[in-house]
Simulated assay, not measured.
Amino acid sequence: MRIIGIDPGSHRAGYAVLEKNSSRIRILTYGTVEAPSGTQSPDNLLILRKGLREVLEEYKPTIASVEEMFFAKNKKTASRVFESRGVLLITLAEKNIQILEPTVSQIKKGTTGSGTADKKQIRHALKLLLNIEPLKGHDDSWDAVAAAYVGLSMSSSPLLKIKR
Rank of each mutant, 00 (worst) to 15 (best):
D43S: 15
T39L: 07
V150N: 03
F82A: 09
M1A: 01
A146I: 05
T77I: 15
K75F: 12
G137A: 08
A125G: 09
K73E: 13
K127W: 12
G86R: 00
K50P: 11
T39N: 03
S153K: 13
G38C: 11
A78H: 01
S105G: 02
S105D: 11
L159V: 10
I90H: 04
A16F: 06
N44S: 15
T116A: 12
L159I: 12
Y15P: 08
T32G: 11
A13Y: 08
S156F: 00
P61Q: 02
I4R: 02
I47Y: 05
A146C: 10
I6F: 04
K76Q: 13
V66M: 08
T62P: 06
A148K: 00
S114G: 09
E133P: 14
L52V: 09
E94F: 07
L159N: 13
L18F: 04
E67N: 08
L45E: 12
G9V: 06
Y59H: 14
G115N: 05
P102H: 03
G137F: 00
E57W: 14
S23N: 14
L28M: 13
K163C: 09
V55R: 00
S155E: 03
N131S: 15
S79H: 13
E133M: 12
P102R: 00
K163R: 14
M154N: 03
I107V: 15
W142K: 03
E83V: 03
S79C: 13
S22M: 05
K73C: 06
K20I: 04
T103F: 00
G151D: 01
I63Q: 01
E34K: 05
M69P: 14
T62C: 12
G9P: 06
L88F: 07
K50I: 14
K120H: 12
W142R: 07
S153D: 10
T29L: 06
S79G: 10
L152G: 09
L100S: 06
Y149P: 04
V33C: 12
P36S: 04
K120C: 02
P102T: 00
L126T: 03
G137D: 06
K163P: 14
K108M: 00
K119T: 02
P42G: 11
T32P: 13
R164E: 15
A78W: 01
R164Q: 15
I97R: 06
L28S: 03
S65Y: 06
Q40T: 13
